[in-house]
Amino acid sequence: MSASLHPFAELSPARVVGAIESLGLWLPGEPFALNSYENRVYLVHDDERRRWVAKFYRPERWSDAQIQEEHDFLEELSSASVAVAAPWRNDSGVSLHHVEGMRLALFPQLPGQAPELDNPEHLFALGEVVGQVHEIGQQRAFDHRRRLAPTLMANEARQTILSSQWLSQKQRAVYERVSDALVRCLEPHESAFKRCLRVHGDLHIGNILGRDSSFALVDFDDALMAPAVQDLWMLLTAQGPEERQMQLSEVIEGYEQALEFDRSELALIEPLRALRLMRHSAWLVARWEDPAFPTAFPWLADAGYWDGHLRELEQQRLAMSDERWLARF
């Protein structure tokens, strides 16, 4: 069933409250919708003044087994005192709830603000919590969640764009050329992605909350098997070499409080950046029929967006073609 015909697409405040209260909680107020496009996510509070983040999972994206692996990983991390939000479980130990054809989970709300990625103390603390996640993550593998496969995933994204109607004839020709070149740039790194562990998978600044150099990781929806650097490279935002080296040193020093970091994985940073660029635009195209997407991303329909995206891909191709790019790290 497509999302546009699914109860997921018609979640009213009353339906959200009814679904949560069917689990045995009572909500004296209305839910507050949070910024989330892949799933539908709401902030609620119950009659005991506990604040919860209610996640309604997008249909047909993950199987129940894949979602349960997310929840069980979070439970492992929480039991080891790693700063994450493990899902609420009812008296029967169930964390993934089925209500009116929807799949729902409740997470305790973690307060805090995003880190400052130019603050050495924050970077050290972030590296430390990621290292703690990976110390647990290496102890076993996911059975149902994906393994990061850059060439396969890049080709999937490429086909999504090329099978759509978003590009002009001229843009399509450019995209075919540059995306093919990027895929070929990814191929030599394929073997390095065989060394994988369980990771967060989408560790951008919006998925980190905390204060006073103490941070927690939230939203493990994209957890998968991947090299450790997948959870580190998006923390390295500096452009200049000195600032970049400072960021890298602090993150790795924090990380190695828990686990040794294999520095050969730094060679995967630009391939991972290329993959993310390709997959992001493909994700927007694939989700366009969801009513939330045209409202949130109206510029996708502008030819100027695609011109800019093509320039960005070309710049990334040049960066990966330059054998000196690793020296930046």
Rank of each mutant, 00 (worst) to 15 (best):
H122K: 10
L123E: 03
L123F: 10
F124V: 00
F124R: 11
F124A: 00
A125L: 07
A125I: 08
L126H: 09
L126R: 07
G127V: 06
E128D: 14
V129E: 12
G131E: 06
V133T: 05
V133P: 10
V133R: 05
H134L: 05
E135I: 07
E135T: 15
E135R: 15
E135Q: 15
I136Y: 09
G137D: 05
G137N: 04
Q138P: 00
Q138W: 03
Q139S: 14
R140Q: 13
A141R: 15
A141Q: 15
F142N: 01
F142S: 01
F142R: 02
D143H: 10
D143K: 09
R145K: 02
R145A: 07
R145G: 05
R146W: 10
R147I: 04
L148N: 05
L148K: 03
A149C: 11
P150G: 05
P150Q: 04
T151R: 06
T151Y: 00
T151F: 01
L152V: 12
L152C: 08
L152Q: 11
M153Q: 15
M153I: 05
N155C: 07
E156V: 09
E156I: 10
E156Q: 14
E156L: 10
A157W: 14
A157S: 15
Q159E: 13
I161F: 07
L162I: 08
Q165Y: 11
W166D: 00
L167M: 04
L167N: 01
S168D: 06
S168M: 03
S168G: 07
Q169Y: 09
K170T: 12
K170Y: 10
K170H: 11
Q171P: 00
Q171N: 01
A173Q: 14
A173E: 12
Y175N: 03
Y175T: 02
R177P: 05
V178G: 08
V178W: 02
V178S: 10
S179P: 10
S179T: 09
S179F: 11
A181D: 14
A181S: 11
L182W: 10
L182K: 04
V183A: 02
V183K: 00
V183E: 14
C185L: 15
L186V: 02
E187R: 01
P188D: 03
S191M: 08
S191F: 06
S191P: 00
S191V: 11
A192E: 11
F193D: 00
F193I: 01
F193H: 04
K194E: 15
K194T: 10
R195Y: 12
R195K: 13
C196P: 00
C196Q: 14
C196Y: 04
R198K: 12
R198H: 09
H200D: 03
G201A: 04
D202M: 12
L203R: 04
L203W: 12
H204I: 03
I205V: 15
I205D: 07
N207L: 02
N207Q: 13
I208P: 02
I208F: 03
L209R: 11
L209E: 02
G210D: 03
R211T: 12
D212I: 02
D212H: 15
D212Y: 15
S213C: 12
S214G: 00
S214T: 13
S214N: 11
S214V: 14
S214F: 14
A216D: 03
A216C: 09
L217E: 07
V218N: 01
V218G: 00
D219H: 05
F220N: 00
D221G: 07
D221H: 06
D221P: 13
D221A: 04
